[in-house]
């Protein structure tokens, strides 16, 4: 069965290692922060200039000068630091952030990602997404495997304007964990109750199914 948003977030959180600096995009990626295992610590980077983002504030601790990249009020954890936007993107573009997790409309077999613009609809902007995909050491894309019409989001070539090229190596969907390698998607894990055949049917881009495909563990 397809995973819920929370389950995708739980699976994403399993990727983190103790001591990782992580930037989480809006949506499912942000949910992953709630599922970081108790025995490890990760530090969240918010690209408006905060390393060590904490929980939302209590009512009496709301501070207009403390927001995250989604413009929501937040707090800072012990050991946090605050800096300007150029410094923030030096961390990102200089490859100092260990993990970036973000959503996408489409990903293709060459690791290209489209996530910011649908022609014909109002374009609001890319924010920091292009910097993040160009700079982070490891990028994980989280998305549903297909759109609401059942069309695959994993393609041989993205059809929408790109956010970045040759930058995606790992994708976690509601059906599977896949790697992008040598011009193909490689199936690594299936969601419980999902078969490699179902993943193949719903993956439009070239898909390699190795002998060993494990079931996701939670």
């Amino acid at each position: 069965m397809a995973l819920s948003r929370e389950q995708i977030a739980m699976r994403v959180a399993q990727e983190f290692k103790d001591g990782d600096y992580v930037n989480l995009g809006i949506g499912i990626p942000t949910l992953a922060a709630s599922y970081v295992p108790d025995d490890i610590s990760v530090m969240l980077q918010s690209e408006n200039g905060l390393l060590g983002m904490g929980a939302y504030p209590t009512d009496d601790a709301v501070d207009a000068d403390m927001i995250n990249a989604g413009k929501e009020t937040v707090t800072a954890i012990t050991g946090a630091s605050i800096f300007n936007s150029a410094e923030s993107f030096a961390m990102i573009r200089g490859g100092h952030v260990d993990f970036t997790v973000l959503g996408a409309f489409e990903v293709d077999v060459n690791g290209n990602i489209a996530s910011w613009m649908i022609p014909g609809k109002l374009i609001k902007g890319m924010g920091g997404a292009m910097d993040l995909v160009a700079g982070a050491k490891n990028i994980i894309v989280t998305m549903t495997h297909t759109d609401k019409h059942g069309n695959s989001k994993l393609l041989d070539a993205c059809t929408l304007p790109l956010t970045g090229v040759n930058c995606i190596t790992r994708i976690i969907t509601d059906l599977a964990v896949l790697e992008v390698k040598d011009g193909a998607f490689v199936l690594r894990e299936c969601a419980p109750g999902v078969t490699p055949d179902e993943v193949k049917q719903k993956t439009k881009g070239a898909l390699i199914i190795p002998d060993e495909v494990t079931e996701m563990q939670f």
Binding site: A86, S88, F89, G127, M130, G135
Partner: peptide, 13 residues
Amino acid sequence: ELTPQGTLAEKMR
């Protein structure tokens, strides 16, 4: 003119 956030910061810097 939509400009990536890090590029915008760097353009100013």
